[in-house]
Structures are given as C-alpha cells and as structure tokens.
C-alpha cells in the first residue's frame, strides 16, 4: 500500500518493511536474529529455522525492489548469546548476496554488541540518520519538520468486538509528533498493543493486504 506523507511516497509492505522509491531505500526494523539461540542457551528449545525464514524474506524483498540502500532500524540481533558463528555467517552471506549497501542503526538490543560486529561488511551507526525530510532512528524521536521513521515499539493493533478478536502487527502513524513506526520484522517477536488516538492511523498487516484503521 502506498501512502504519501509530506512529500515522501512510502510503500508499506506486507512483509513488514517500507520501500521508498524516491530514495531507493528499503527499511526494516527489529529483526532479532539469533533469538532462538538465546532461548536455546537458557534451556528453552525454539527452532533456529526462524533466522533462515527471516533472512529469506529479506532477501526476497531485495530481489523484488533492488534497493540501493537497506537500513535496519535497530535490534538486528537479539542478544550477546545470538552472536554465534552460524548466525553471523548467515548474515554475512545475506550481505554478500543482497546487492544493496547495508547500514545498521543500532538499537537497545545491539548497542553493546558493536565491537563484535566489526567483521561484518556493514556499517553500524549509533545515532539518528537524516535523509531528505526523514529522520530515521531506532527509538521514537520527535523533531519538527521531519517525519521520524523508527522501530523499537513492535506495534500491534487489537481489534475486539464481542463476536471476534484479532491482534495484528501494524505500521503505526501518528501526526503529533509526526512519526511512522515499523512493525517488528522478525518472525519470533512479540508485539505491543497500541491505542489509536485521533489523527493516528494503524496500517494493519493481514495475509497479503495492508488495511488502514484510523483513530477517532
């Protein structure tokens, strides 16, 4: 689904990513690679195929949109225990294949990991990135005149009537401050229920559609 905010046209993708044609820029956030490994190390068996599933989806996006640049808005890796050879190698393999310049804007989960990421062929950035009228960050920021695109929150919309109830990941747009929050890209990640305020919109992802819900 395409939306235009200020003068920027953004394509909200059901794969939980944003593509900006004008800038040939692909944005994802909160991938949480190696989350299974973290759980496994603590005696909780979560299948590590999840990393592969996430990377395949990301690779497919790169193949389809051929972006010049891919920026991960933080929390690419889940924890220190995630940085095992097979996870790092799979990521490096992706970097080699994706054909885009990749930047990681570190988040709260991977800030402490920067020294261990130096061997990877991507750039780690520790502060917000200004890009045209956009302000890219991990945690929500507000700076007037800019559209802040960020992650961190893992927004979900809870839809509930007496008859039915659904809880779905969404892109969350709010007017004041002007912000667009990405859903978490990772498969095995939880969500935070947002409340829709007047002027805000939740773009809910359902199967192969993005459906807007406006706050009233």
């Amino acid at each position: 689904m395409k939306i235009t905010i200020q003068t920027t046209e953004l394509e909200l993708l059901t794969e939980k990513a944003i593509y900006i044609e004008q800038l040939r820029l692909l944005l994802v956030s909160d991938v949480h690679l190696g989350k299974s490994e973290t759980f496994q190390a603590k005696g909780i068996p979560i299948a590590n195929i999840i990393n592969q599933v996430n990377l395949e989806r990301l690779k497919k996006l790169c193949d389809t949109y051929q972006p010049e640049q891919l920026i991960v808005l933080g929390d690419l890796f889940h924890s220190r225990l995630s940085l095992v050879p097979e996870v790092l190698e799979a990521w490096q393999h992706f970097l080699n294949q994706c054909g885009a310049k990749v930047q990681l804007l570190v988040g709260n989960h991977d800030r402490a990991l920067i020294p261990q990421l130096s061997d990877l062929s991507m750039q780690c950035v520790d502060s917000a990135i200004q890009c045209d009228r956009l302000l890219l960050s991990h945690e929500p920021l507000s700076q007037s005149g800019f559209l802040n695109i960020c992650g961190h929150i893992h927004p979900c919309l809870n839809l509930k009537t007496r008859l039915d109830r659904l809880r779905l990941p969404c892109f969350y747009y709010s007017k004041h401050p002007e912000q667009l929050i990405l859903p978490s890209f990772g498969e095995f990640t939880g969500g935070y229920e947002i409340t829709l305020k007047p002027g805000s919109v939740a773009y809910v992802i359902a199967d192969n559609a993005v459906i807007p819900f406006e706050g009233k």
């Binding site: 299974s36 490994e37 496994q40 190390a41 005696g43 068996p45 979560i46 299948a47 590590n48 195929i49 999840i50 592969q52 225990l81 095992v84 097979e86």
Partner: peptide
C-alpha cells in the same frame, strides 16, 4: 530427547542445553 536435544523439528537446536 526434548530435555536433552530440544526435540525434533524442521530446524535444529544447536545451542540447546538443558
């Protein structure tokens, strides 16, 4: 098997230890 290797699944549990 579940408590030693994490069980059987489509993926694997290389880091699993309980």
């Amino acid at each position: 098997d579940f408590i030693t290797n994490g069980g059987k699944c489509l993926g694997a549990y290389p880091r699993y230890k309980k």
